[in-house]
Design a protein around this nucleic acid. Structure first.
Lengths: 144, 144
DNA sequence: CTATGTAGATGTTATTTGCATATATTATCA
DNA sequence: TGATAATATATGCAAATAACATCTACATAG
């Protein structure tokens, strides 16, 4: 639980990397990407994962592969080998109906969390108004 | 990573308890409560923690105590024993300036995360429109 | 004196993650 | 041809976290 600025993402603003480990929400984002792409393999999904990430923390490829296997165990995705294309064999994943429903469940949870987080930040902002230096302003000035 | 409805919080809606373990954000909420209450002891904070929680998951008292000690180690709070009042001795905590700044850092991070989460949910909602049963509607109907 | 509630702390175990590494196939280029 | 780079999946292990149970200690009600 070090201080908020991390070496990976620079010093413009506090970064979730350095606020203690925050879950990376690999599962919902993976389900979403699978729905978006129709069918895809792990390595490919790994390339889209970052731009849809919910935190600053990058998702480890190992975590993604493990998540996909777990999702399959739970019946949320199916997979089959794709030997055809160039390069090493790929395990093609696709969402099941259960997976679609599970994504919908995640959305209910995440909407709730986003709301709670937003309210918390607003409340806290009102509370500390003036008592701390404005981090964003300070940082953007430092960056000129 | 069981399905989304949990035994602790009933069946009205999917619950973060059952979506795999999601961090409980004990640290920022603790910092916020300390700022709000001025000075307080762990057991007391434990009673307010739930209503300010960012997830459905309840916070373990042990986790709260450990977080407070950790915050002290990092210089974000100070503590002293309060022997005076009836009952067992209480360890009274108070925020330091560094703790205030750290809370401000958390707010930057959480605001960012809340935004990302909100956008994610909106995007995904558009994507799955119609493909899944509407969980909230279904649940509220089931509950009549 | 026992039970209960308050208050804080610790130990054990399980899960999750990050990092390093293994393995295999194809592509590229000298 | 041989070296090596890129693609693709997977596993082992250490460290961090979390849940749950347990423990000490004090006060008060009955």
């Amino acid at each position: 639980m070090a201080r908020g600025f991390c070496h990976r993402h620079g010093n413009e603003r506090p970064c979730s990397c350095s606020m203690g480990n925050i879950y990376r929400y690999v599962e919902p984002v993976t389900l979403y990407l699978l729905k978006l792409k129709g069918r895809a393999y792990g390595y490919e999904l790994g390339n889209y994962l970052r731009e849809h990430a919910l935190t600053d923390s990058e998702v480890d490829r190992a975590a993604l592969y493990r998540t996909l296997r777990q999702l399959e165990t739970n019946g949320f995705v199916t997979s089959e080998w794709d030997i055809g294309g160039g390069g090493p064999a790929r395990r093609l994943y696709a969402l099941t109906q259960a997976g679609m429903d599970h994504l919908a469940e995640w959305l209910v949870v995440l909407r709730q969390m986003a709301g709670a987080m937003h309210r918390f930040v607003d409340d806290a902002d009102k509370l500390i108004e003036g008592d701390t230096k404005d981090l964003q302003t300070t940082a953007s000035v430092e960056n000129e």
